[in-house]
Design a protein around this nucleic acid. Structure first.
Lengths: 189, 189
DNA sequence: GTCTATATTTTGATAGAC
DNA sequence: GTCTATCAAAATATAGAC
């Protein structure tokens, strides 16, 4: 069991603060106070505030990318692929609700890595869209506007982080299952 | 036709900037530059940056509250009330996509009016939840978890502002109609 | 209604002692 | 690994001339 490094601790606490007020409104002094040290001491572990944000967002974006690759390669039916995507979001959001806030709301404050993030996001959405369109072609998904379906499902999944911590009495498998029912019954044929 | 006051213009431009970078990351100099004047000149029209944010958010929150009151008082069936809520969101988000970003993402930076905003939001969600529960009792809505239904629908509606401007080829009535199909087929009985 | 000039605070980050 | 001290830049906001 690998114990948490000081750097990892800083990133974890930073993500919590970023979730509450957003990246721009959190100062290095806020972060230091939450860590119980002085602001200058933070720089012994991290290079800049920007690096903290980058670490939080890119690691999550890559997790989603990897998950999508596995789903894409699987030879499941389209509706099952959508169920797997829902489970992927429930799993990642459940493990790091704080980081998800930065991924959703503070990506525009990325500097060097912003274009890399945008590429990962675009590819993710393209794959998602393809699965929906395949499902329509195969007659497995209702022939409704695929853009609206994509937008509707993805909006809900991206908001999971807001909602999961308030409902920790719900277990991940059950949540994914109920969400699948509600999200997919609407597009199921 | 009432022409736009300078104050209204400042608020409109500010909302656009807040949408792009968030309230905290937009400086009064940014706003002044976008207006073509100097930062000090802004204060001839507004009292503070905080006042701009308050104006943007509270006016929108009150619009939603008024809309919900009308829907609540109507004696439509539960599913029709949900359709009316969807239209309400499409209409308001379509008229002020920029302001919707602040409403969703920057409410935590409100000072004096934050508790008022939170009360309006809580009442809105309570009314929304009641409509869903009534629909279940009356057998009009599927007996699934009402919290998850509320969360799922509301997440999509709250994200409309991100999506509407990219798709201005879609007319509001058609969007509301297609959204209703996708969002409500999943919970319809 | 806009400007220049400026006051005051706060910011991210560094240097060097311990 | 943390501290004190400090820097340079940037922030919101005000005063007063035009």
């Amino acid at each position: 069991m690998k114990s948490e490094t000081r750097k990892e601790e800083i990133i974890r606490i930073a993500a919590r603060l970023f979730k509450e007020k957003g990246y721009s409104a959190v100062t290095m002094r806020d972060l230091a106070k939450a860590m119980g040290i002085k602001a200058a001491s933070l720089y012994n572990h991290i290079n800049s505030k920007q690096d903290i944000l980058t670490e939080i967002i890119i690691s999550l974006a890559e997790e989603f990318t990897e998950g999508m690759m596995l789903i894409k390669r699987s030879n499941a039916r389209s509706l099952d692929k959508l169920r797997q995507i829902i489970s992927l979001h429930v799993r990642i959001a459940g493990m790091n609700t704080d980081g998800m806030a930065s991924l959703n709301n503070d990506w525009m404050h990325l500097k060097e890595k912003q274009s890399y993030y945008l590429k990962l996001r675009k590819d993710y959405e393209d794959n998602f869209r393809s699965i929906i369109k395949d499902g329509i072609s195969e007659g497995e998904i209702a022939p409704l506007n695929p853009e609206i379906m994509l937008f509707s499902i993805l909006s809900t999944l991206r908001s999971l982080y807001i909602w999961i911590p308030d409902k920790d009495d719900v277990d991940p498998k059950e949540l994914a299952s109920e969400l699948s029912m509600i999200l997919l019954r609407g597009i199921n044929r």
